[in-house]
Design a protein around this nucleic acid. Structure first.
Lengths: 162, 162
DNA sequence: ATTATTGCAAATATTTTGCAATAAC
DNA sequence: GTTATTGCAAAATATTTGCAATAAT
């Protein structure tokens, strides 16, 4: 259990979400004969180690600090694999960069995006999800995914001098 | 009052939303010495006449059916002007195209996007907006705009044979 | 020995921009 | 007559892809 943050929440099986997702990924790759390369391992490590919402450039920067010969295309291809396996989720917050976060199927959350500093905060509000389901029912719309994002100014940026 | 749909809802001043927005636009353009050209008039007419959520290509197609010599760049530039004046709102629903709708400052609505046929339905749910404000308060976040979109399958597409 | 993967460069796709020609004021 | 606007082509931006070389199985 090296590299696991002390105090990370454990689930019933005694594993962190990240550990479970890594297991899912190994399974996914094994199932279709995908290979574990040095580059992939480096990118996947960078992704799992990161504070969330990394862009391709963020990831590449990190990975290249250890191994400068990793190419853009490999990062794109690896993150596409993670997305398709459900291990990562893609987000487009409107700054032109696709960002990735851990694909936690169980805990759904939405986002507050600060237009001043770019910081991204997660929020959960089950009552909104509930009302959302009611809206879907009203239109007999089958929801597959949703996006709920509030854009504005975070607390810290409000306090900064103009 | 030519070209106004019969039965369109009128506001206090006896004008439709579209009429009011056209007035706003005239004001906006006059204020900064922007000129009324044939191309702009054609694009603006196409935009106002349209069922909502037109892409640049949709607009260009319409405009070119009347005047084939209008260029892409002019449509982009005109829609940017409409967006900056608040007369149009931009949306990116994830299919790679920016779409535009009438910028109705008073009636806020959100969207259901069908992934099968691409249709876009608007919905309003004041209770969600209310809860959203509460979330913002909880994080002391100053909301400037928001995006709430449900992606899935619309009623019509659910009924279609697979 | 196979075949998935890599890195590069070229291709895509959408939007933006420089500039000379044109048209609105 | 000024100066905003147009249309074109080229640039910019983010992402994808073809392909020969490489590396994992």
């Amino acid at each position: 259990m090296l590299g696991v943050k002390p105090g990370a929440p454990l689930n019933a099986a005694g594993k962190t979400d990240a550990e479970r997702l890594r297991g899912d990924l190994d399974q996914y790759m094994a199932d279709r004969g995908l290979r574990s390369t040095e580059q992939r391992r480096a990118i996947i490590d960078a992704f799992f180690d990161s504070t969330e919402h990394m862009s391709i450039d963020d990831l590449l920067l990190r990975v290249r600090s250890e191994d400068p010969r990793v190419g853009y295309a490999t990062v794109y291809r690896t993150m596409k694999m993670l997305t398709e396996s459900g291990v990562a989720h893609e987000h487009k917050f409107g700054d032109g960069f696709t960002r990735y976060e851990l694909g936690d199927a169980n805990t759904h959350h939405d986002h507050l995006i600060c237009l001043a500093c770019g910081s991204i905060t997660e929020f959960e509000e089950p009552l909104i999800e509930q009302l959302q389901e009611r809206v879907a029912l009203r239109y007999r719309f089958l929801v597959q995914e949703h996006k709920h994002e509030l854009y504005g100014v975070c607390e810290a940026c409000q306090k900064k001098p103009a």
